[in-house]
Amino acid sequence: MSQPGSLRKTDVTLTINGKSYTRQVEPRRLLVDFIRHDVGLKATHIGCEHGVCGACTVRIDGRTARSCLHFAVALQGAEIETLEGLSADGRLAGLQKAFHDAHGLQCGYCTPGVLLTAEEFLSENPGPSEQEIRAALSNNLCRCTGYVNIVKAIANAARDRDKTKADPAGGSRP
């Protein structure tokens, strides 16, 4: 190493799933390591650490992002959300059910990232075509499913959302 740079740790405060976490970390600490190892939220996975595979997808200020391509120190003040947060508040319930019913996951390693991608996509594209779903899935690599049942699960989730919207009482109107 020509110039060692700083190993000095500083206090970094991040808001993750609405909660504030302060940890002493080096400036080079990757967001994904902060989330996983400093805070202990393990749903965000590491697949490549160069921004290609999407396993580490989180939301930063409401949009999906690769958490392996961000430094925790640079995100002070940002709102970060992970699968744990979106899962706990029920926003993903429809998608999670659709993935379960359609066998949209096998090893489950890419799944958290895929769910976040799908959620962002469906919130912007309520009635997507198969081709649009596939294009949206270009955000994530999956090595188990061949994407077949992921595409199906997302299409089913879109249809079910549509139904719920048309019929907010979920079919059990008095």
Binding site: K42, A43, T44, H45, T82, L83, E84, S87, L92, Q96, F99, H100, D101, H103, L105, G108, Y109, T111, P112, L115
Partner: peptide, 16 residues
């Protein structure tokens, strides 16, 4: 039969 592995994996609670 739907998989028993799914619910925890879908919540990101699989322990890799």
């Amino acid at each position: 039969v739907p998989r028993r592995e799914d619910p925890y994996l879908l919540r990101g609670e699989g322990r890799f």
